[in-house]
Amino acid sequence: MTQDGLARAQAAAWVVRLGGDATGEDGVEFDAWLQAAPGNRAAYRRALVLWCEFDARAGDVLAELTAVGAQASARPPAARRSASRLVPPAGRRRSALRWLTPIGGFALAAGLALAVLPPTVLKPATSTTYATGRGQHQRVALGDGSVIDLDAETRLRVTIAGSERRVALAEGQAIFDVVHDARRPFLVQAGGRTVRDVGTQFDVRQRAGELTVTVARGRVEVGSDGSGQPVLLGPGQRLQVDRASVSQLSVVDPAETFSWRAGRLVYRAQPLADVVADLNRQFVEQTVIADPELGKLPITGVIVLDNPRAVMTRLSLMLPIKAVPSDRGLTLLRK
């Protein structure tokens, strides 16, 4: 190893060692190393800057990695048109899923209350219903290479026919990574609308009568089942349709919408009541807001889904709330 290479290797080792629990003795040793060779200090500084940068951007980098992994899984294999199209090559899929399944699927943090159901490979030309309960996520790998990730408390029915691939989302939220096939369009029906992909990744949420479609990549067309012009959505665009069928188009960061798959929920000025409703889907232990006024507090930030008590403890540091145990789980009170 060159002198320079040695300095870089040692610098990296020092950053990691001191990044743990460093004692005064470590410091004396470190001091001696810094003085030992002229290049050591610069090498350490470089490694340190990067080390701190990864901390500062950890959430963003994680979201980006998840998006990249998803992209890889949606990329059609070269031999897609061949007879083997319905069975994706195992190796490719495994590598594509590497970033998406850190440990046991979606269970990101120790003590995570999410049950993980095994991925399912769907046989063609059948109709199958998938449903997740509270605290469950499920990944459905379709034979054509498309992947559907179901959020908690979600129910959808997948029908693969010769001429089309159709998903009826009865309730809940799912991310669709669709391998485009011009001869078999991919349709998602939800809330009286049909979302038609043009080869893409998108998220559809249908809860409490409200429909939201968010596109990460590619384009989708959202058509009303009644009449009217379909709306074409591109990357970063979101269409919201409320109970009264009033639509609203907005521009969002898709990484935020897709973050639930990586065990994170991202909010921008959303009422606490909505946040708690989302959390109650993710955890068996239920949280109740005692005071309706409290439910209107706007929340902005990222919630890491480890366990409800930890989440509430962190929230209570940010907001004038406190969580007290109740018979079903937790009750939120004003501090």
Partner: peptide, 9 residues
């Protein structure tokens, strides 16, 4: 430099 790695800043 000694403290920054642990403090991440």
């Amino acid at each position: 430099l000694f403290l920054a790695a642990r403090l991440r800043s």
